[in-house]
Design a protein around this nucleic acid. Structure first.
Lengths: 109, 109
DNA sequence: AACTCGTATACCCATATGGACATATATCTA
DNA sequence: TAGATATATGTCCATATGGGTATACGAGTT
């Protein structure tokens, strides 16, 4: 099971997800929207599906894909830390640095 | 210039970033914290540095690395859409699906 | 049943990637 | 200057990955 970031690492998969943001789409649709070859689209959709990022609904001979709720949650959670981080500014970094390396600051006499 | 997601795709790089969350650290420090070999740490730090995710401050023979503010912003921004998305629920997906495919809904007489 | 459309898979190939190990470089110290 | 410490780089290798092309499969259609 490849992790979420590995998934998002590939631009083509991100394009697919972007193309799915406004709802379900068939493979042919996605091929048109992403300018990728049909086999590539299927291949990447397969990967996205296997890792639970998208779901498939079959309608006749069409395969309709859509984004699965919470699929990218893990990635988002991981990043949220850093969001908070740089929103507060980096002063705390220096503080942490100054404190942790010498737990009991020994005063040089 | 590899994009942010490519950076985060590798677990070892994420471990490094995690280890840097509480502030500056030397390479030796990072080696201890991440259980990676020193050359690997240096190699990945190099990549992180080249892509602007971390910065280097030289202090004597130590190289102190720290996370760069806003480094992961791009990734975070991209994901923020989906955050909003699944927080609202997926009803809108179906709506979008029902509307877009036929822009002018032709009433069947 | 033959045909067509929509989609998935198989196979091949070129490339990128990360680790391990050895070694180079730089800074401090004796 | 010799030696030790801290970090970087070079080389080799095994593997993963994505694309392209051809082809297989499945569901409608005639």
């Amino acid at each position: 099971m490849p992790d979420v970031f590995r998934l998002l690492a590939d631009p083509s998969r991100r394009r697919l997800l972007d193309a799915l943001r406004d709802g379900e789409h068939s493979v042919t649709d996605l091929v048109a929207r992403t300018r990728m070859s049909q086999p590539s689209v299927s291949k990447q959709l397969r990967i996205l599906r296997d890792s639970g990022a998208v779901t498939l609904r079959t309608a006749g001979r069409q395969h309709l894909y859509s984004i699965r709720e919470g699929a990218l949650r893990e990635a988002s959670d991981w990043l949220s830390y850093y969001d908070r981080f740089w929103r507060e500014g980096l002063r705390r970094m220096d503080d942490a640095l100054r404190d942790r390396p010498r737990p009991r600051t020994r005063r040089r006499r």
